[in-house]
Protein backbone atom coordinates (compact mmCIF):
# COMPACT_ATOMS: atom_id res chain seq x y z
CA UNK A 1 0.00 0.00 0.00
CA UNK A 2 1.31 3.46 -0.86
CA UNK A 3 2.06 5.95 1.91
CA UNK A 4 -0.44 8.63 2.84
CA UNK A 5 2.22 11.23 2.11
CA UNK A 6 5.54 10.61 0.46
CA UNK A 7 8.08 13.42 0.45
CA UNK A 8 11.35 12.81 -1.36
CA UNK A 9 14.29 15.19 -1.09
CA UNK A 10 12.12 18.28 -0.65
CA UNK A 11 13.90 21.62 -0.65
CA UNK A 12 12.15 24.96 -0.50
CA UNK A 13 13.90 28.29 -0.85
CA UNK A 14 12.23 31.66 -0.51
CA UNK A 15 13.59 34.74 -2.20
CA UNK A 16 13.48 37.76 0.06
CA UNK A 17 14.10 41.43 -0.59
CA UNK A 18 14.88 43.20 -3.81
CA UNK A 19 18.23 41.45 -4.12
CA UNK A 20 16.49 38.10 -3.97
CA UNK A 21 18.43 36.73 -1.02
CA UNK A 22 17.76 33.02 -0.60
CA UNK A 23 16.18 31.74 2.60
CA UNK A 24 16.09 27.95 2.84
CA UNK A 25 12.93 26.93 4.71
CA UNK A 26 13.08 23.18 4.03
CA UNK A 27 16.35 21.41 3.35
CA UNK A 28 16.46 18.03 1.60
CA UNK A 29 13.58 16.57 3.60
CA UNK A 30 12.41 13.01 3.01
CA UNK A 31 9.40 11.56 4.84
CA UNK A 32 7.09 8.60 4.43
CA UNK A 33 3.85 9.03 6.40
CA UNK A 34 2.02 5.70 6.69
CA UNK A 35 -1.73 5.41 6.25
CA UNK A 36 -4.17 5.05 9.12
CA UNK A 37 -1.99 6.71 11.76
CA UNK A 38 -1.82 9.99 13.58
CA UNK A 39 1.48 11.56 12.59
CA UNK A 40 3.01 14.49 14.42
CA UNK A 41 5.28 16.95 12.70
CA UNK A 42 7.13 18.83 15.41
CA UNK A 43 9.66 21.55 15.67
CA UNK A 44 10.27 25.09 16.87
CA UNK A 45 8.79 28.13 15.13
CA UNK A 46 10.33 28.69 11.72
CA UNK A 47 11.67 25.14 11.41
CA UNK A 48 9.78 24.53 8.14
CA UNK A 49 6.76 22.54 9.36
CA UNK A 50 4.09 24.77 7.90
CA UNK A 51 6.06 25.31 4.70
CA UNK A 52 6.33 21.54 4.31
CA UNK A 53 2.56 21.19 4.71
CA UNK A 54 1.92 24.01 2.22
CA UNK A 55 4.19 22.36 -0.31
CA UNK A 56 2.43 19.04 0.26
CA UNK A 57 -0.92 20.75 -0.37
CA UNK A 58 0.36 22.50 -3.48
CA UNK A 59 -0.10 25.96 -2.00
CA UNK A 60 3.59 26.64 -2.41
CA UNK A 61 5.78 25.25 -5.19
CA UNK A 62 8.85 23.22 -4.14
CA UNK A 63 12.30 24.33 -5.21
CA UNK A 64 13.28 20.69 -5.56
CA UNK A 65 11.88 17.30 -4.65
CA UNK A 66 8.86 15.11 -5.25
CA UNK A 67 5.69 14.85 -3.19
CA UNK A 68 2.78 12.49 -3.53
CA UNK A 69 -0.46 12.21 -1.56
CA UNK A 70 -2.11 8.79 -1.40
CA UNK A 71 -0.11 7.74 -4.44
CA UNK A 72 -1.09 10.75 -6.54
CA UNK A 73 1.01 13.76 -7.38
CA UNK A 74 0.30 16.44 -4.82
CA UNK A 75 -1.32 19.70 -5.97
CA UNK A 76 -3.62 17.78 -8.29
CA UNK A 77 -7.34 18.10 -7.95
CA UNK A 78 -7.64 14.33 -7.42
CA UNK A 79 -5.21 14.41 -4.48
CA UNK A 80 -6.97 17.37 -2.89
CA UNK A 81 -10.34 15.71 -3.15
CA UNK A 82 -9.01 13.05 -0.77
CA UNK A 83 -7.39 15.53 1.60
CA UNK A 84 -8.76 17.83 4.28
CA UNK A 85 -6.82 20.80 5.65
CA UNK A 86 -7.15 22.99 8.71
CA UNK A 87 -4.73 25.93 8.46
CA UNK A 88 -3.00 27.54 11.41
CA UNK A 89 -5.15 30.19 13.14
CA UNK A 90 -7.99 29.69 10.69
CA UNK A 91 -9.98 32.71 9.60
CA UNK A 92 -13.26 32.32 7.79
CA UNK A 93 -15.80 34.72 6.31
CA UNK A 94 -17.38 36.24 9.41
CA UNK A 95 -20.76 36.86 7.82
CA UNK A 96 -21.34 33.16 7.10
CA UNK A 97 -22.82 30.93 9.77
CA UNK A 98 -20.91 27.81 10.75
CA UNK A 99 -23.35 25.65 8.80
CA UNK A 100 -23.06 27.87 5.70
CA UNK A 101 -19.27 27.67 5.84
CA UNK A 102 -19.21 23.88 6.13
CA UNK A 103 -21.75 23.63 3.31
CA UNK A 104 -19.70 25.99 1.14
CA UNK A 105 -16.55 23.93 1.74
CA UNK A 106 -18.43 20.70 1.04
CA UNK A 107 -19.62 22.11 -2.28
CA UNK A 108 -16.11 23.18 -3.22
CA UNK A 109 -14.82 19.74 -2.25
CA UNK A 110 -17.21 18.05 -4.65
CA UNK A 111 -19.77 16.58 -2.25
CA UNK A 112 -22.82 15.70 -4.35
CA UNK A 113 -26.11 17.52 -3.83
CA UNK A 114 -27.76 14.33 -2.56
CA UNK A 115 -25.15 13.80 0.16
CA UNK A 116 -24.64 17.44 1.04
CA UNK A 117 -27.05 17.80 3.95
CA UNK A 118 -25.97 14.61 5.71
CA UNK A 119 -22.25 15.33 5.13
CA UNK A 120 -22.64 18.79 6.67
CA UNK A 121 -24.53 17.46 9.70
CA UNK A 122 -22.01 14.63 10.21
CA UNK A 123 -19.08 17.04 10.13
CA UNK A 124 -20.80 19.47 12.50
CA UNK A 125 -21.60 16.59 14.83
CA UNK A 126 -18.03 15.29 14.80
CA UNK A 127 -16.76 18.76 15.66
CA UNK A 128 -19.45 19.20 18.36
CA UNK A 129 -20.68 22.34 16.60
CA UNK A 130 -24.32 21.48 15.94
CA UNK A 131 -25.70 23.86 18.58
CA UNK A 132 -23.66 26.84 17.38
CA UNK A 133 -23.93 26.03 13.68
CA UNK A 134 -26.47 28.73 12.90
CA UNK A 135 -24.56 31.54 14.55
CA UNK A 136 -22.39 33.86 12.41
CA UNK A 137 -18.72 32.88 12.55
CA UNK A 138 -17.88 36.40 13.72
CA UNK A 139 -19.38 35.49 17.11
CA UNK A 140 -17.27 32.34 17.62
CA UNK A 141 -14.55 31.92 20.24
CA UNK A 142 -11.09 30.71 19.25
CA UNK A 143 -11.90 27.14 20.23
CA UNK A 144 -15.09 27.19 18.19
CA UNK A 145 -13.21 28.58 15.19
CA UNK A 146 -10.80 25.65 15.40
CA UNK A 147 -13.70 23.20 15.68
CA UNK A 148 -15.61 24.67 12.74
CA UNK A 149 -12.30 24.63 10.87
CA UNK A 150 -12.02 20.95 11.69
CA UNK A 151 -15.58 20.38 10.43
CA UNK A 152 -14.86 22.08 7.08
CA UNK A 153 -11.69 19.99 6.74
CA UNK A 154 -13.49 16.65 7.17
CA UNK A 155 -16.88 17.39 5.59
CA UNK A 156 -16.02 15.56 2.35
CA UNK A 157 -14.85 12.48 4.27
CA UNK A 158 -11.19 12.74 3.21
CA UNK A 159 -8.73 9.87 3.65
CA UNK A 160 -6.04 12.26 4.83
CA UNK A 161 -6.53 15.16 7.22
CA UNK A 162 -3.77 17.73 7.70
CA UNK A 163 -4.04 19.93 10.78
CA UNK A 164 -1.67 22.87 11.20
CA UNK A 165 -1.48 23.87 14.87
CA UNK A 166 -5.05 22.78 15.60
CA UNK A 167 -4.85 23.65 19.30
CA UNK A 168 -2.93 26.92 19.12
CA UNK A 169 -4.59 29.39 21.47
CA UNK A 170 -7.21 26.87 22.58
CA UNK A 171 -7.73 26.12 26.29
CA UNK A 172 -7.14 22.60 27.70
CA UNK A 173 -10.79 21.55 27.45
CA UNK A 174 -11.03 22.68 23.83
CA UNK A 175 -7.68 21.07 23.19
CA UNK A 176 -8.92 17.77 24.62
CA UNK A 177 -12.03 18.00 22.40
CA UNK A 178 -9.80 18.39 19.34
CA UNK A 179 -7.75 15.43 20.57
CA UNK A 180 -10.95 13.35 20.69
CA UNK A 181 -11.81 14.40 17.11
CA UNK A 182 -8.37 13.30 15.97
CA UNK A 183 -8.83 9.92 17.66
CA UNK A 184 -12.26 9.61 16.04
CA UNK A 185 -10.68 10.15 12.64
CA UNK A 186 -8.05 7.52 13.33
CA UNK A 187 -10.74 5.08 14.49
CA UNK A 188 -12.41 5.57 11.10
CA UNK A 189 -9.15 4.53 9.42
CA UNK A 190 -8.12 8.03 8.35
CA UNK A 191 -4.60 9.36 8.35
CA UNK A 192 -4.11 12.51 10.40
CA UNK A 193 -1.02 14.68 10.08
CA UNK A 194 -0.67 17.06 12.94
CA UNK A 195 1.73 19.96 12.98
CA UNK A 196 2.29 21.38 16.45
CA UNK A 197 4.73 22.46 19.07
CA UNK A 198 2.49 21.48 21.97
CA UNK A 199 4.50 18.42 22.81
CA UNK A 200 2.23 17.10 25.56
CA UNK A 201 -0.71 16.84 23.22
CA UNK A 202 1.31 15.37 20.41
CA UNK A 203 2.59 12.68 22.77
CA UNK A 204 -0.98 11.83 23.72
CA UNK A 205 -2.52 11.63 20.27
CA UNK A 206 0.24 10.68 17.83
CA UNK A 207 1.40 7.23 16.77
CA UNK A 208 4.51 8.50 15.03
CA UNK A 209 6.41 11.75 15.12
CA UNK A 210 9.00 13.56 13.07
CA UNK A 211 11.02 16.40 14.54
CA UNK A 212 12.33 19.14 12.29
CA UNK A 213 14.89 21.80 13.03
CA UNK A 214 16.12 24.50 10.63
CA UNK A 215 14.39 22.83 7.73
CA UNK A 216 15.95 19.43 8.31
CA UNK A 217 14.56 16.20 9.71
CA UNK A 218 16.36 15.38 12.96
CA UNK A 219 14.31 12.44 14.27
CA UNK A 220 11.51 10.20 13.02
CA UNK A 221 9.81 7.15 14.52
CA UNK A 222 6.98 5.64 16.57
CA UNK A 223 6.23 7.72 19.68
CA UNK A 224 6.79 4.78 22.05
CA UNK A 225 10.12 3.98 20.42
CA UNK A 226 11.51 7.46 20.42
CA UNK A 227 10.44 8.24 24.01
CA UNK A 228 11.21 4.98 25.79
CA UNK A 229 14.44 4.75 27.80
CA UNK A 230 15.20 1.07 27.61
CA UNK A 231 17.93 1.29 30.26
CA UNK A 232 15.56 2.53 33.02
CA UNK A 233 12.37 1.20 34.69
CA UNK A 234 9.59 2.61 36.83
CA UNK A 235 7.99 0.69 39.68
CA UNK A 236 4.83 2.18 41.17
CA UNK A 237 4.38 0.94 44.72
CA UNK A 238 1.48 1.45 47.16
CA UNK A 239 1.84 1.71 50.95
CA UNK A 240 5.62 1.62 50.96
CA UNK A 241 7.22 2.00 54.39
CA UNK A 242 10.84 3.07 54.99
CA UNK A 243 11.66 -0.54 55.90
CA UNK A 244 10.09 -1.86 52.72
CA UNK A 245 12.02 0.69 50.68
CA UNK A 246 15.32 -0.30 52.31
CA UNK A 247 14.60 -3.96 51.68
CA UNK A 248 13.70 -3.32 48.06
CA UNK A 249 16.85 -1.29 47.49
CA UNK A 250 18.96 -4.02 49.08
CA UNK A 251 17.31 -6.70 46.94
CA UNK A 252 17.90 -4.68 43.78
CA UNK A 253 21.51 -3.95 44.77
CA UNK A 254 22.09 -7.69 45.23
CA UNK A 255 21.32 -8.04 41.49
CA UNK A 256 23.54 -5.13 40.49
CA UNK A 257 20.64 -2.69 40.00
CA UNK A 258 20.73 0.83 41.46
CA UNK A 259 17.74 2.89 42.59
CA UNK A 260 18.31 6.27 40.99
CA UNK A 261 15.37 8.14 42.49
CA UNK A 262 12.26 7.55 44.55
CA UNK A 263 9.48 10.14 44.07
CA UNK A 264 5.72 10.36 44.32
CA UNK A 265 3.90 10.05 40.99
CA UNK A 266 2.37 13.32 39.77
CA UNK A 267 -0.63 13.92 37.64
CA UNK A 268 -0.31 16.54 34.93
CA UNK A 269 -1.68 20.02 35.43
CA UNK A 270 -3.81 19.39 32.34
CA UNK A 271 -5.40 16.31 33.95
CA UNK A 272 -6.06 18.26 37.14
CA UNK A 273 -7.56 21.16 35.17
CA UNK A 274 -9.83 18.86 33.20
CA UNK A 275 -10.91 17.11 36.41
CA UNK A 276 -11.83 20.39 38.08
CA UNK A 277 -13.35 22.21 35.11
CA UNK A 278 -16.32 20.26 33.88
CA UNK A 279 -18.79 20.66 31.06
CA UNK A 280 -18.43 22.50 27.80
CA UNK A 281 -17.20 25.97 28.51
CA UNK A 282 -16.45 27.03 25.01
CA UNK A 283 -19.50 29.12 24.38
Amino acid sequence: MTSAISVRRLTKDFRIGLRGLKLRAVDDLSLEIPRGQVYGLLGPNGCGKSTTLKVVLGLVAPTAGEISILGEASATSAARRRTGFLPEAPYFHKFLTGRELVRYCAQLSGVSAGELASAVEDALGLAAMVEAADRPIGTYSKGMLQRIGFAQAVVHDPELVILDEPTAGVDPVGSAAIGRMIHAMRDKGKTVVLCSHLLGQVEQVCDRVAIMDRGKLVLEGAVDDVLARRDRHILTVEAMTPAARAAAEAALAAHGATVVSVTHPRRSLEDLFRELVTGSRDA
Binding site: R80, Y91, L108
Partner: peptide, 12 residues
Protein backbone atom coordinates in the same frame (compact mmCIF):
# COMPACT_ATOMS: atom_id res chain seq x y z
CA UNK B 1 -6.91 36.81 6.02
CA UNK B 2 -5.63 33.51 4.67
CA UNK B 3 -9.09 32.25 3.76
CA UNK B 4 -7.50 31.55 0.36
CA UNK B 5 -5.35 28.89 2.09
CA UNK B 6 -8.44 26.98 3.16
CA UNK B 7 -10.12 27.32 -0.22
CA UNK B 8 -7.14 26.54 -2.43
CA UNK B 9 -6.35 23.42 -0.41
CA UNK B 10 -9.62 22.06 -1.80
CA UNK B 11 -10.06 20.71 -5.33
CA UNK B 12 -10.38 24.25 -6.59
Amino acid sequence: NKTALTLLAKPL
